[in-house]
Amino acid sequence: MRYVLMLCSDVSDETVAGQDPDMVGCGGWTEDMERRGILRGATGLRPSSDATTLRVRRDEVLLTDGPFAETKDQIGGFSVIDCADLDEAIELAAAHPWARVGQIEIRPVWQP
């Protein structure tokens, strides 16, 4: 079986939100998992305040500042992309078929 572990936090808790993953000590766990051949990939994300949410409706790209906050929404999958800037990320995400039925949150990956 393969599983995705989703690392969540209470964004209203200032001591947790926006923490540098290295400060929490995520690195040690990651190294251990890599050594044991279990980890298939991992990355920290920038806080949700740096997110942009995108939908495409009637061929129009609709952007919102911030995460797709509704609690009834659930993550259905993810893709990691490597591109020049947010404008390119928006164009690539807008071309994803899911943008027409659901929404896609574009969240920058944590890079030290």
């Binding site: 305040s49 740096d50 500042d65 020049a84 800037d85 947010l86 990320a89 574009i106 920058p108």
Partner: peptide
Amino acid sequence: RAKTKIRNAGIP
């Protein structure tokens, strides 16, 4: 917050 987002989200 806006300036942080410009920097961290890669707004060109």
